[in-house]
């Protein structure tokens, strides 16, 4: 069994995002981290490996700075690391084609990733890759374990939750998982430093990155709200309720 995890390095969720000119200023990001939902996917991959064996390959499509995230993944037990250079990547079709090609080349038959990245908030990558590699897609799961040749996953449903079964090849996207990503131990950190990262281009993967019909126009900070009205003490509750009714018309 080969397990692939698709990871993305994003500004840490505690980081401030500043806009300079009409683009987000990435150089001003104080800390880069693995996207939180990807962390849940990675932890689940490690647990699948512990239960049933198989190598884990971590694949990311991004700039050179993302090598740090891959090394962090190696420190908790990922076996192989692949960085796909993201030059020319502008839309969802590009990212998905590259990741799908890398997954296929790795021979993995189960793929795990976050439900969406914490920067672009898209959520298209998992379902799109599943189609391109011919795998079943189970989205928004919080836990998964192997059973027989397939898997049982827990996902939200309109009426609560449901356990679903699925065979290989399959892809899971993670909502918040049951277990936080483990911390690396010293040995893991030392071993990870020596771990090779395979860097590949779209040419290496045989993927032609075409032009895109999506064109980024601008980034801007969120609109600043005019300062609100502030009241002291619980005595002001009737005033606020009256304003909600008469000024805001929301109750």
């Amino acid at each position: 069994m080969g397990i692939a995890v698709l990871l993305k390095q994003v500004p840490d969720t505690t980081a401030k995002i500043s806009v300079s000119g009409d683009r987000v200023d990435e150089t001003a990001v104080s800390k880069w981290s693995m996207s939180p939902y990807d962390e849940y996917a990675l932890e689940a991959a490690l647990q699948l490996k512990e239960a049933g064996g198989g190598d884990i390959v971590a694949i990311t499509c991004g700039p050179i700075r993302a090598t740090k995230m891959l090394t962090d993944a190696a420190a908790v037990g990922v076996d192989n690391l692949i960085l796909i250079q993201d030059e020319g990547v502008t839309d969802s079709t590009h990212v998905q084609s590259l990741l799908a090609a890398a997954v296929k080349r790795s021979g993995s038959d189960v793929v795990l990733c976050g439900k969406q990245a914490a920067d672009t908030n898209g959520g298209s990558t998992g379902p799109g890759v599943s189609h391109l590699i011919g795998a079943a897609c189970v989205g928004m799961i919080s836990e998964v374990y192997a059973e027989g040749d397939g898997f049982i996953a827990l996902r939200a449903s309109p009426t609560g939750n449901e356990r679903v079964e699925v065979s290989r090849p399959c892809l899971f996207t993670f909502d918040k998982g049951a277990t936080e990503l483990r911390r690396p131990n010293v040995r893991g950190i030392m071993m990870a430093k020596k771990k090779q990262i395979e860097t590949v281009t779209s040419d290496d993967l045989g993927v032609a990155i075409g032009t895109s019909s999506v064109s980024l126009q601008s980034h801007s900070p969120p609109p600043v709200k005019p300062p609100g009205q502030k009241f002291e003490g619980a005595d002001s509750v009737p005033v606020v309720v009256a304003k909600l009714r008469d000024e805001a018309n929301v109750i």
């Binding site: 995002i17 987000v24 920067d119 908030n121 019909s213 601008s218 980034h219 801007s220 900070p221």
Partner: peptide, 16 residues
């Protein structure tokens, strides 16, 4: 128009 970084910035793009 859409929010990115969970609404910490706004992105405007065009698509055909």
């Amino acid at each position: 128009t859409r929010g990115i970084y969970s609404g910490k910035a706004i992105e405007i793009s065009t698509v055909t």
